[in-house]
């Protein structure tokens, strides 16, 4: 019983990290109607920026204090997100959804190549930013890094949800997610919406990188987290900020249970397959996810 609860706690914490990455998908979709497949690569770029300002700068002889590193990284992310919007997605406004989706695919190849060219393929260590170790709660052990990450996810969810449903700018972004042409004809700036979407998306992805990689190893393979978080975003509903952490909890717990009980039987495949089986199942049963917008077809 204690084992089971321990598994559930760990699964839930990891699930909330997935939820955090899923939020970065949702933020971009919610504000600009772009499903960005390259989100995992965006996260890796954020992580490499973090490395450059911390370990990289230290190796070059400039030790920068951690709060400044975080500020520099976030500034770098904002510039990077804005650059992506300016060069790739702004010229594509008004193009069919297919074209925009493909631009995301192209961005995936481009970013993967660029990170490898700029930073090289070898893996690097990220300094400890969030406290390591574990808190004992009765008979259970709770990983502090993941716990802080989970709390951060919850706070961020509440804040972003308030932003998208209460603030004037947030509501304008929702109009863009509904339909580009309609939004534009009502005087909502699609350009501004996509810029905000990308800046928010890269910042959220980088904060996910901080939670995920603090005190561990950064390599190009980290980008796989993007494809793990996509099913989570889909389960929660692409338009729902609050759905993402909830779906993350569900997927995380199911994955932990699978890896504990089914993996020994299936040669380690069950936990790897689970997010994608869940994704296909969600698409079949509730295509708009748990909390997404139900779209109405008109002819």
């Amino acid at each position: 019983m204690i084992d089971l609860l321990q598994i559930l706690i760990e699964g839930a914490l990891v699930g909330l990290v997935y939820g955090l990455v899923a939020i970065s998908f949702v933020v971009i979709y919610r504000a600009s109607k772009i499903i960005n497949l390259a989100q995992g690569e965006v996260l890796v770029v954020g992580a490499f920026l973090l490395w450059t300002f911390s370990e990289g700068a230290a190796a070059a002889g400039y030790a920068i204090p951690m709060p400044v590193v975080i500020v520099l990284t976030l500034t770098g992310c904002v510039i990077f997100g804005w650059l992506v919007e300016r060069t790739i997605f702004r010229p594509l406004i008004g193009q069919p959804a297919f074209t925009i989706f493909m631009a995301g695919v192209a961005l995936l190849i481009l970013l993967r190549g660029l990170t490898q060219l700029v930073w090289g393929a070898q893996s690097r260590s990220i300094p400890v930013i969030l406290p390591e170790g574990a808190i004992t709660l009765g008979p259970f052990l709770v990983n502090t890094r993941l716990l802080i990450g989970a709390l951060f996810t919850v706070v961020l969810t509440v804040a972003l949800h308030a932003f998208f449903t209460r603030s004037r700018l947030g509501l304008r972004l929702a109009a863009v997610a509904e339909d580009h042409t309609t939004a534009q004809s009502l005087g909502v700036s699609v350009k501004q919406a996509i810029a905000v979407a990308w800046v928010l998306g890269t910042v959220v992805a980088t904060s996910a990188a901080v939670v995920l990689l603090s005190g561990s190893i950064l390599s190009l393979e980290v980008a796989v987290i993007g494809f793990k978080a996509l099913p989570v975003a889909l389960l929660g509903g692409m338009e729902s900020i609050r759905g993402a952490p909830l779906a993350g909890l569900i997927i995380g717990i199911l994955e932990a249970l699978c890896s504990a009980y089914l993996d020994p039987v299936t040669n380690g495949a069950a936990s790897g397959l689970l997010p994608y089986v869940a994704m296909v199942a969600v698409l079949l049963i509730r295509p708009y996810g748990l909390f997404g917008w139900r779209r109405i077809e008109r002819l």
Binding site: M102, A103, L110, G113, Q116
Partner: peptide, 18 residues
């Protein structure tokens, strides 16, 4: 070299799309 060919293909796709 592999990374450079990825960058070139990515840029080609984007150029084609835009």
């Amino acid at each position: 070299v592999f990374a450079a060919s990825s960058v070139v293909l990515g840029l080609c796709i984007l150029a084609a799309l835009i």
